[in-house]
């Protein structure tokens, strides 16, 4: 047997009847049981999970850049330590998710290459720049807030390794959101200039944060199948509504205005009515024309290329030690 026993890189018995396998797969899904790496799964399911988990992993890794931009300029040692820890967490989240994705038979190198050559995407939000220090707080509050809305239901996703990765991510994400809110609240208690900085930042990030849930349901071709398979648990619009309802009272507590003239409580629906983000802008950003797309990928590529000698040296060192150990053992 070649390949890993635990990660599913083993060809399954070809003589098994595909229809029977499909039935067993459907049964597992309908019982809300989890699919595990070595289970048989339809090729389209495998592809969909790979696409979603890879995109999620890439988002965590690219997401290190906008905030990393402020580490050297954080205004105090406390804020610097917090920001460093947060950016390190994003790297960790990316690694949990890459591992989950690899259980489906894609290698880490392939994933990195597909990110760099644009074959796989990452969240549109990270193509927006962080222009002021308040953006660090706004990202924690709104961007990580939106991520939490999205990720909590994914802890119950049908693919086991993805759900387990999400549980780890969610545990850590709460710190991210709270540090962001606390940062903004501290600035709101400061000078007029600081308050204006917070408001300006919220104005810039509100709509891109709402776009993070993806296009409206009637324009989201993958949603129905992903929900039938239990990969996604809620529609884009449901999650967006949840985000708005959660955020409005937080904005009030903070003393900032959300830049949406249509935002109002709807007593009948027991939910907020709100405007739609600019979906043309969204499409433009995901197709590569956001303010920072080129910069984000160029930076990732440089880090990957610059790190090549480290990966090679470590491999050479391990091989040398293996050879030495082998000589000693046979001496």
């Amino acid at each position: 047997m070649t390949g890993s026993a635990v990660t599913g890189r083993v060809a399954l018995a070809p003589e098994a009847d595909e229809l029977e396998l499909l039935e067993s797969f459907e049964r597992t899904i309908s019982h809300a049981d989890r699919i595990e790496p070595r289970d048989w799964m339809p090729e389209a399911y495998r592809k969909t999970v790979i696409r979603q988990v890879a995109q999620h992993a890439h988002s965590e890794i690219i997401g290190m850049q906008p905030e990393g931009n402020w580490i050297t300029r954080a205004p105090s040692l406390r804020r610097k330590a917090i920001l460093l820890a947060k950016v390190q967490d994003e790297a960790g989240h990316g690694l949990y998710l890459y591992s989950a994705c690899e259980t489906l038979g894609t290698s880490r190198n392939e994933l990195t290459e597909m990110l760099i050559n644009g074959k796989q995407k990452y969240s549109s939000i990270f193509n927006y720049p962080t222009l002021s220090y308040a953006d660090v707080g706004t990202i924690g509050w709104l961007v990580d807030g939106a991520a939490i809305c999205n990720q909590v239901p994914l802890c119950r996703t049908s693919y086991g390794p993805y759900g387990r990765a999400m549980i780890r991510v969610c545990k850590e994400e709460s710190f991210h959101q709270r540090q962001g809110f606390e940062l903004l609240a501290t600035m709101m208690r400061g000078t007029d200039e600081q308050r204006a900085m917070v408001q300006e930042s919220v104005n810039r990030f509100w709509w891109p944060a709402l776009m993070m849930f993806g296009p409206p349901d009637d324009d989201s071709p993958n949603t129905a199948q992903s929900m039938a398979w239990g990969i996604k648990r809620n529609t884009n619009d449901d999650l967006r509504q949840r985000m708005v309802d959660m955020t409005v009272p937080q904005a009030e507590a903070l003393g900032v205005t959300l830049p949406d003239p249509d935002l109002a409580w709807n007593d009948q629906r027991q939910a907020h009515d709100f405007g739609q983000p600019d979906w043309d802008e969204f499409k433009d950003v995901i197709s590569g024309n956001g303010p920072c797309n080129t910069q984000r990928i160029a930076h990732r590529k440089k880090a990957w290329d610059d790190g090549a000698w480290v990966r090679e040296a470590a491999t050479a060192f391990a091989q040398k030690n293996d050879a030495l150990g082998h000589q000693e053992a046979t001496a």
Partner: peptide, 30 residues
């Protein structure tokens, strides 16, 4: 050398008195 670092499975003991539990995997040279 160009090939990927091998994959490892990771087990963590949360505190004394508990079993090591599988937590995930990662790549490393050795």
């Amino acid at each position: 050398i160009q090939a990927e670092w091998p994959l490892y499975e990771v087990f963590v003991r949360g505190k004394r008195g508990l079993n090591h539990v599988h937590v995930g995997s990662l790549h490393a040279a050795d």
